[in-house]
Design a protein around this nucleic acid. Structure first.
Lengths: 211, 211
DNA sequence: TTTCATTCTTGAATGGTATTCAATTTTGAA
DNA sequence: TTCAAAATTGAATACCATTCAAGAATGAAA
């Protein structure tokens, strides 16, 4: 037992933390490469340099791991978006910017493409991870008289599914990239502002996300 | 070979037709009972009184059969809706009624509940089967100055996913039945009419569907 | 340091199911 | 009646997710 290992408050706990992390990373890599269904637990375990059975001491099932992977992805994106919108004044613009960046990422980032099938899994992860922010924004904007949202949870729930639907249509080539802008308008319309205001909101400046 | 069998223009063709039909019915039954994933090809084949291998001479894969089942379901509903809206004057009301009846069926009909997972499969089936009607309605309503839809295909694509999202949230108990009305308003808002008009449209009379 | 109960890891075995395929049956034309 | 083609069959195959008995690793106690 050498000195470096001695930092007692749980070497085990630290290793578990590391393995949990590594597994999510490995899961994301394999699933992004081959799709969630085609990814095998064996390959994910290999990629994480762990025994196949070990994965099950971290995640109850393959679905459970997939959910963790998607929630991580959503959480990271939500955090990056939040960093930018922090500085926005108009609460309506905060929501509009978020919706745009999510669609842009979903359609542009190669790592997302394969994950869009299992759309209810990704939509639910999006709802859980970004909901707290988005629902707050919808309520803020409504209080500010900018939006007219009756039920913010419902509005965002519909938005997540609509976003996934559009992203799937675009990434599968069913619809051209050019529908993205119009889809933002549609999703903004669900907030009860009229179409003209939605168009105006959608055309605001869209600064890039931080790394 | 008895006389009754002689009607030559393809007894085989007729049997194939019948088997195809029977398989879709059996598939629907088993999948509605246990869910698409838990339904086994063996049980579906048994239920249709056919060998397990035979199913593959009618459908390329289990997914293929699931798609056929869902498209049948959507086609039937679309037909029943069309029968009612035939008599409507206002093209906007035609769309509103259709959206309502689809959500009502998706959340109310026991046979649909289990099929809502695999949401991209059901949303796509909905898009393909009901799209021709819905897109026509959206375009009619836009021409009539009732809606302001830029891209009817996109608008309906988003509607299908939003509908599935709401139906899932309601059937899983995540949201109460009472969100249904507000969800119609949101989906109608995507057509570019304002919220007030959407509310008005959503509150129109909704006659029952024919059997 | 040594001991030992506890916790973690492992990968081979299990179980379940979609799909294939060689053999058999049915078909309908000759 | 005969036979090639088409359809049907269900047992065999292949592929994984998941389990689990056996074997480390750990760290507290002696």
């Amino acid at each position: 037992m050498n000195i470096a290992d001695q930092q007692k408050p749980g070497r085990v706990a630290r290793r578990r933390q590391r393995n949990h992390e590594t597994l999510i990373k490995a899961g994301q890599d394999v699933m992004a490469e081959k799709g969630i269904d085609a990814a095998t637990m064996q390959e994910i375990a290999d990629r994480a340099d762990l025994g196949a059975g070990t994965v099950y001491s971290y995640f109850k099932s393959k679905d459970d791991l997939a959910i963790a992977v998607l929630e991580r992805l959503m959480h990271d994106l939500a955090t990056r978006i939040e960093k930018v919108t922090d500085t926005f004044g108009d609460p309506g613009q905060v929501y509009a910017y978020g919706v745009y960046k999510v669609i842009e990422t979903a359609t542009g980032d190669l790592r997302w493409k394969q994950l869009l099938s299992r759309s209810e899994v990704i939509a639910d992860a999006m709802y859980r991870q970004m909901g707290p922010f988005a629902i707050r924004d919808l309520e803020n904007a409504t209080r500010a008289g900018r939006f007219r949202v009756e039920d913010a949870m419902l509005t965002f729930k519909m938005a997540t599914y609509a976003i996934v639907g559009v992203a799937l249509a675009v990434t599968t080539g069913q619809m051209p990239d050019s529908v993205i802008d119009e889809s933002i308008v549609g999703i903004l319309c669900m907030t009860g502002i009229g179409r003209d205001e939605a168009i105006e909101l959608a055309s605001r400046e869209r600064p890039p996300l931080p790394a």
